[in-house]
Design a protein around this nucleic acid. Structure first.
Length: 484
RNA sequence: GGCGCGUUCGUCUAGCGGUUAGGACACCGCCCUCUCAAGGCGGAGAUCACGGGUUCGAAUCCCGUACGCGCUACCA
């Protein structure tokens, strides 16, 4: 049987980086094994789940290029894929468990339970439910339920159950003492299922073979195994992933910067880079390769190369990797990606891009190897789109501060103004010859021109910039700088 | 408190009984060069958390300790 895996986010927020990694691993595992990747929305937390969050999660996954074989918007043989729409399945499962005696009603109030927990916690030993209601005679229980008494349904952990062994693919064999398993709640007093019940019912229904999820669920796993067994269903394999931390070793949060996939997109990251970087946070292809395409990931991913230890999210390395992917883009590809950012910055319009795409593509070489994020592009190209340019004071001071620099700039303006043809090579040879004639270092002359034309001592390559800006504008800026 | 998990350069990792402990980011130096980048070359950086074992030999296997994290809910 080919593997069936699932990613089951809770739509209580955006898809964050940890969830994205879980999704990526599930997806990659399914692709590499020719299995099936199911997307299921675990929205049983009615308080915090919203349709907007669900929509955003789907959007983020699509943006990353993670497609699912079954789930929202694509359907599948196990519809519906929203837990809130699967109430019938949970009710049916509970009925089966009632019939087999593996579930029983509990009438203890929240206050009573809390009091007991307090006492237990103060002393030694487990704090789990003390099974007060497990001994209630079924007919008595039925009468109390009929009378409308509030109750939950609990799992009856088998008395003779030995220690529960989870043969985790990532962590190896981990043993949980049966004594530590309490009769936890399956169905709440309002009739809705708890997480540990709903996921198991769904994973069983959907014939999930491998559960790949966050480390925080490892301790829940023995409970879930008990439910699988009570349901008489085969237990899937498990693979628990370590957490992703911020630089301070704490859970990754907004304090550390962007954490949602959406936020990374807004900060100018490419989906390929996020996918690649995040995949490497806890998995490696061979220990050497760092740039890994989506296709390679989908072909080569394997669970046995997942590492056990938690990873700290390194924004700097992600940024470097994003630069790698930006440089890897074709001129047309990067032009298309940068346009929204130029429009956003108020420098141009999509109409202008559509009118002369080739011109925009010719800008790409100026910034491709200088940009780490898409957000770096508009500031670097702004001087090409504005009427004039405001000189950065520090730059002006540095490159135009001396009389020699100003004199050579004036000479350069004159020399360039007289040019018949306006292209990179002509501009370069003109300025180089002028430097010789003037007896100044080329670098000094170039920097003076650079500041006059781009406003800053740091800019894209000079001759290309002048060629793209045009003769009139270039010369005008150089003369304007002399009077500044 | 109980139960579980984790610990290799600053960071991500390779390693699965014998290696000068390898790679990547970041850092430093040199080269290239019209600035900034990108690129090339080189460097520094890890007593493999600590302590005991097992073994001819341990980062690798076993036990313990420390620290960190997770679960211990009618959250997921």
């Amino acid at each position: 049987m080919s593997p069936r895996v699932r990613f089951a986010p809770s739509p209580t927020g955006a898809l964050h980086i940890g969830g994205a990694r879980t999704a990526i691993y599930n997806w990659a595992f399914a692709r590499a094994t020719e299995g099936t990747f199911v997307l299921r929305i675990d929205d049983t937390d009615a308080e915090r789940s919203t349709p907007e969050n669900t929509a955003q999660i789907l959007r983020s996954m699509r943006w990353l290029g993670i497609d699912w074989d079954e789930g929202p918007e694509v359907g599948g043989p196990h519809e519906p894929y929203f837990q809130t729409q699967r109430a019938g399945r949970y009710a049916a499962a509970l009925e089966r468990m009632k019939a087999s005696g593996t579930a029983y009603p509990c009438f203890c109030s929240a206050a009573e339970l809390e009091a007991k927990r307090e006492i237990a916690r103060a002393g030694e030993g487990p704090t789990g439910y003390d099974r007060t209601c497990r001994g209630i005679d079924p007919s008595v229980a039925a009468a109390r339920i009929a009378a409308g008494e509030p109750h939950v349904w609990r799992l009856a952990v088998p008395e003779d159950r030995g220690d529960i062994v989870v043969d985790d693919i990532v962590r190896g064999e981990t043993v949980f003492p049966a004594s530590a398993m309490d009769d936890f709640v399956l169905v709440r007093s309002d009739g809705t299922p708890t997480y540990n019940f709903a996921t198991v019912v769904d994973d069983a229904d959907m014939e999930i073979t491998h559960v790949i999820r966050g480390d925080d669920h490892l301790s829940n796993t023995p409970r879930q195994i008990l439910v699988f067994e009570a349901l008489g269903h085969a237990v899937p394999r498990f693979a628990h992933l370590s957490m992703i931390w911020g630089a301070d070793g704490k859970k990754l949060s907004k304090r550390h910067g962007a954490t949602s996939v959406e936020a990374f997109r807004e900060e100018g990251y490419l989906p390929e880079a996020i996918l690649n970087y995040v995949a490497l946070l806890g998995w490696s292809l061979d220990g050497e390769t760092t740039i890994i395409s989506r296709e390679t990931l989908a072909r080569e991913f394997s669970l046995d190369r997942i590492s056990k230890n938690p990873a700290i999210f390194d924004f700097e390395k992600l940024e470097w990797m994003n630069g790698v992917y930006i440089r890897d883009l074709s001129p047309a590809g990067l032009a298309e990606k940068m346009i929204p950012w130029l429009v956003e910055a108020g420098l141009t319009t999509t109409a202008d891009y559509e009118a002369r795409p080739a011109w925009y593509e010719s800008l790409v070489p100026l910034i491709a190897e200088r940009a780490k994020r898409l957000t770096d592009i508009a500031p670097a190209l702004a001087f090409l789109f504005t009427d004039g340019v405001t000189l950065d004071p520090a730059s002006a001071d540095k490159a135009l501060g001396s009389d020699a620099a100003r004199d050579s700039l004036a000479a350069a303006a004159d020399a360039l103004a007289g040019l018949g043809s306006w292209d990179h090579d002509t501009i370069e040879s003109t300025l180089r010859e002028l430097a010789v004639t003037l007896g100044v270092k080329p670098k000094v002359l170039f920097q003076a021109v650079r500041v006059a034309v781009t406003g800053s001592v740091v800019s894209p390559p000079l001759f290309e910039s002048l060629a793209l800006l045009g003769k009139e504008a270039s010369v005008a800026r150089m003369r304007a700088a002399l009077h500044a």
